[in-house]
Design a protein around this nucleic acid. Structure first.
Lengths: 255, 255
DNA sequence: CGCTCTGTTGAGCTGTCTCAACGGCCGTGG
DNA sequence: CCACGGCCGTTGAGACAGCTCAACAGAGCG
């Protein structure tokens, strides 16, 4: 893609430092706020400038089930998931819940130019995140044009995933949705998976059901069907092993 | 919301003109490319600078059914709908189609920082749009910071609508989806509607079905049910009159 | 050890789909 | 001008996927 703004190479701007706005120590990577450059934002910054980003953030920890924010709250913070799983969802007036995304290590959360979040988020497992004041984060976007670009790309991927979900919900059967879901998790976990064919289901069946627009029983049945077909195995309820990758792929597509 | 970048008031930048980058005539509003300031982008620019935006665009016309672009094509253009209805959709490998949005007068199309669109668009009715080269449009975003801000807000609304759709598809029954859909159209058309309680269905039942994750017969039946209940009337197949607004609202919500 | 919570499985029910027929509208051609 | 054919929307009857209600087993925890 053609890069429009005629900005400097690499991280630009703050290269002209000496006067880092947060007075940080540039040494000592990796830092605990972004171990092994896991954040989705890292691609935008060099080892040299990465600390400037994370020094501006605060670490927070959530227990399973704690809410991070609700949709009608003012969007004061941006978050980055360090460990654990976060559930992003919308609730209806009669208590129904549609999960719109699961967030894992490295994923960004709270992106919006509006003054309210417009969606809710809670801890699906115990989780550690780092949190920026929104104003401070926006300063960083100005300071590092590459970061801003990366940020826009991430926003675009969020939309793409949301369209994928709509496609799943509108066009696929229960079994196909499950297959597509496992494939999605597989892809997202492949970077840091221990075993290349194992997918971790860090969320409950209820959370999966709320994401896939199904009931828990249906999720359970669909998983069983995939197991009986020999496409996957379930060594534990939170662990799927993909046996026939191509078959799983096909299942997630055809009608 | 707190506006971060310390930019000038109003449209900023090009105020220092004399050397307008596109050598246009600032007089003569409204122009045919944006009659009555209908574009979603207009909020960002004054009458004085609006022509700079639209002078940089080309008018194009599409007949009903013609495709504007496909998801795997390079994202070279940004569009603004002037008249007609555009269908934005994703297709599956076996020909299934999930409509993710309908676009009307003023709506923006083709927004993405990626090099490919990632979704397809076609004319749902005969339509007129104006089209920008993407590079040129991005120049304008830099020239007018207010425009850039408006652009981000629009992108955010696109995501919000996509989340709404996922909620509908995952949590609502056929009748509820129809009710919600009619409400949505009602809100979007209220600005320029002739009759305040009439909603125009400019798309076919098939398009509605592909949007709502239903079959045409189910759409038809759901509309009939709403009619029998006395919530709406259907003076023509492309025209809904809302009789009981509150009831329709309630139907689109509760389980 | 017993409690609760989560996940699985079964049986019957219901909403949506499938298949089919039909009527109205519109463009085409006699 | 009317007759015809194709397309679109509506309605009915039966099929089926996913839901509801219910029972039960295993894991986690006090």
């Amino acid at each position: 893609m053609k890069t429009r703004p005629p900005t400097a190479t690499e991280d630009s701007a703050a290269e002209t430092a000496g006067q880092f706005p947060f007075g940080i120590n540039v040494e000592g990577l990796p830092c605990i706020k972004c171990p092994a450059r896991t954040s989705d934002l890292c691609g935008a910054l060099s080892d040299k400038n990465l600390p400037a980003l994370f020094q501006a953030s605060t670490l927070i920890e959530l227990r399973k089930g704690e809410t991070l924010f609700l949709d009608d709250q003012p969007a004061q913070h941006i978050f980055n998931v360090i460990t654990g799983t976060i559930t992003v969802f919308r609730t209806g007036p009669s208590g129904q819940r549609q999960v719109v995304n699961f967030l894992f290590t490295g994923n960004l959360l709270g992106i919006t130019p509006e003054d309210h979040y417009g969606f809710s988020a809670e801890a699906c497992t115990t989780a550690i995140l780092c949190r920026w004041e929104r104003a401070k984060f926006e300063d960083l976007l100005i300071l590092f044009p590459n970061l801003d670009r990366q940020f826009r790309l991430i926003s675009s991927k969020v939309l793409a995933r949301s369209i994928d979900l709509a496609y799943s919900l509108g066009q696929l059967t229960a079994e196909q949705r499950l297959a597509a879901f496992i494939n999605q998790l597989h892809e997202r976990q492949s970077k840091m998976a221990s075993d290349p064919m194992t997918v971790l289901l860090t969320m409950s069946r209820a959370d999966m059901a709320d994401y896939l627009g199904l009931k828990v029983e249906t999720v359970s049945r669909a998983l069983s069907k995939l197991k009986v077909k020999g496409v996957i195995s379930l060594p534990a309820s939170d662990r799927v092993v993909i046996i026939d990758r191509d078959h799983l792929r096909r299942l997630s597509q055809s009608a």
